[in-house]
Design a protein around this nucleic acid. Structure first.
Length: 559
RNA sequence: GAGGGCGUAGCUCAGUCGGUAGAGCAACGGACUUUUAAUCCGUUGGUCCUGGGUUCGAGUCCCAGCGCCCUCACCA
């Protein structure tokens, strides 16, 4: 007890060194004393571990007589030692590679150390023998902890058990990890820690990297599909004077020089449609929108949305496009058209089924959706609030309760009640029905699209009706005079589409929680962070028309 | 915002009926040149989320608070 540690001259006692952080700091110091930069430097001519593994087929066993043999097929219990003994003495000849990565496992056998090294393409075992790398270089292994970043030069080969291995000839120290490593088997399981410290989650938990790389593949594929169709990607403003285009509470912010309130956008729609007026005939934006709403396994306050608009198309045009975007993305990540999600088996083989809202309504309730009295009667049976509500709103509440959650899909629900669709063109032969579809998968709304309303006078009327006549939480829009003016300049008939990219990623990667497919989901500040940021937010005034107007008793600000 | 669950060592988790805080991994000392969640010998490590209360005695029971997870609501 309290004896100086014989392995160094730091003056630290053994007791102090039993703290993993102290021990790591001490190894940092010892690296420096040995003349090694613990933070490394440029490391060129590296093979990714995935690429290095591809070279396994080149490994040969060469006998002392000079005969070369390819290795046998490697099965889990392959005993290469027996195979080599039959061939007689010799050595394994494999390509020389340089790899680098994070130390995931370390098995110290005295004069021989095995390391499992990981980079973002995979894992590979390192064999570091004292006789092979030399005594001085081997001393480095005593300063390596789990989680450190190292590199090696060596030859690819296989151990007696058949494990593909880099037999190190030279070991390089690249970066010290100063924090203790998570459990080497279980990793980090606390969801809060995983999200707060996504770096550690990515580095140490199996499968996390793959999910986020798949997300990237999906987003790339979505862009590729649209670009191939001749769409033009644009970047609209994220700061809006009026946060329109969807029914959601916006985040409020303030521009100092203009001394004006601004809102973070809740949708991309109204600016993209202005661009249709301007003549950009196929336009999309794939970007972040912000909604000041609750957080749940399917909701993050900021999320990624795709909106695409095609001049001279309609909602059927967008249905075909939606199907292509989704199936192309599935092909891109190679996961197959039949996916399991949340206990459902979902078959994405096109074409997706297409059913009208009215059909599904009748099947689920036995009531004709067009029969207002019957709908209201049903709503009362379901003890839904009906007073002062538009029949379409009531209709939709029933639909959401009775139909939506059970839609495993993928299924296009088409032709919605008109008055819950204030930005949508009505059917030519039936003004009570809007040309709109939503795509449902696994009980979630994945896409929403319509034939765009381009009649400026009707648009203005619908905005006004929404604002004046309805409880605030049912309102779909705020009056945007410039948008209406834009429509007066002539927006071509068009189809428009919105896809929730996060949900698409959830379904295609099989993740039940949006927090597992968003790199840095919104979290409460850590205890150590300043509480000042919190109180500043709380002190901000509510946006007009979002929490104090109308007769809305639904006051979320009351918490 | 409402209801339910959880919070114990750096990590993953036990902790019985209320009776002096436990394991594995990691860390530290040692052995081992084909291991692979390496193994073996030895050692250390605790604000039991926070604050009250009940009790001779609280990780355990009660109350309040904080955080996370799940369900619901708002919403995509």
């Amino acid at each position: 007890m309290n004896q100086p540690n014989p392995a160094d001259h730091s003056g630290l006692t053994e007791d102090q060194l039993k703290d993993p952080r102290v021990a790591r700091r001490d190894k940092l110091r010892r690296l420096r004393e040995a003349g090694i930069d613990p933070w490394g430097s440029r490391f060129d001519n590296r093979w990714s571990i995935g690429d290095a593994r591809q070279l396994a087929g080149q490994i040969r066993y060469r006998t002392t007589a000079g005969e070369e043999f390819p290795l046998p097929t490697i099965l889990p219990d392959t005993d290469l030692r027996a195979w080599r003994n039959e061939l007689g003495p010799g050595e394994e000849i494999g390509p020389t590679v340089r790899v680098a990565g994070r130390v995931m496992l370390l098995r110290d056998k005295g004069k021989l150390v095995f390391i499992t090294l990981r980079d973002w393409t995979g894992e590979i075992q390192l064999f570091i023998g004292k006789n092979q790398v030399g005594e001085e270089n081997f001393e480095l292994t005593k300063l390596i902890d789990l989680g450190d970043l190292i590199g090696v030069d060596g030859r690819l080969g296989r151990t007696n058990t058949g494990e593909l291995t880099v037999f190190a000839e030279k070991l390089h120290f690249l970066t010290k990890m100063l924090e203790p490593a998570p459990d080497k088997h279980a990793g980090m399981t606390d969801p809060e820690l995983r999200q707060r410290m996504r770096y550690a989650d990515l580095a140490f938990n199996d499968g996390v990297m793959e999910i986020f790389l798949q997300r990237t593949e999906i987003v790339r594929s979505v862009r590729r599909t649209l670009d191939r169709d001749g769409y033009c990607e644009v970047e609209g403003p994220t700061l809006h004077a009026i946060a329109g285009g969807a029914a959601a509470r916006p985040f409020v912010t303030h521009h100092n020089a203009l001394d004006r309130q601004l809102f973070m956008r809740i949708a991309l729609e109204l600016h993209l449609k202005r661009l249709l007026v301007g003549g950009i005939e196929r336009v999309y934006e794939l970007g972040r929108v912000y909604r000041n709403e609750g957080i749940s396994p399917r909701h993050n306050p900021e999320f990624t949305m795709l909106e695409a608009y095609q001049a001279y198309g309609d909602y059927r045009t967008m249905m075909d496009l939606t199907e292509r975007i989704v199936t192309d993305a599935i092909t891109a990540i190679g996961c197959g058209f039949v996916r399991n999600f949340n206990g459902h088996e979902i078959d994405f083989t096109p074409p997706f089924s297409r059913r009208t809202y009215a059909e599904l309504f009748r099947e689920a309730t036995g009531v004709d959706a067009a029969d207002d009295e019957a709908v209201i009667r049903l709503a009362k049976e379901m003890s839904l609030e009906t007073a002062g509500k538009h029949p379409d709103v009531i209709r939709n509440e029933i639909f959401e309760q009775r139909v939506e959650d059970s839609l495993v899909g993928p299924i296009f629900v088409i032709d919605y009640p008109a008055s819950i669709c204030p930005l949508t063109k009505r059917k030519a032969d039936n003004p009570a029905i809007a040309e709109r579809f939503e795509l449902f998968v696994g009980g979630m709304e994945l896409a929403n699209a319509y034939t765009e309303l381009n009649d400026p006078d009707l648009q203005e009327t619908l905005f006004e009706t929404q604002l004046a006549g309805m409880a605030e939480e049912d309102s779909m829009a705020k009056m945007d005079h410039d948008f209406v003016r834009a429509l007066r300049y002539g927006m071509p008939p068009a189809g428009g589409l919105g896809i929730g990219i996060d949900r698409l990623v959830m379904i295609l990667t099989g993740q039940r929680s949006i927090r597992d497919i968003v790199l840095f989901p919104v979290l409460r500040p850590e205890a150590s962070e300043s509480p000042a940021a919190d109180s500043a937010t709380a002190a901000q005034p509510s946006p007009p028309g979002t929490s104090t107007t109308g007769g809305s008793a639904d006051s979320e600000g009351s918490k």
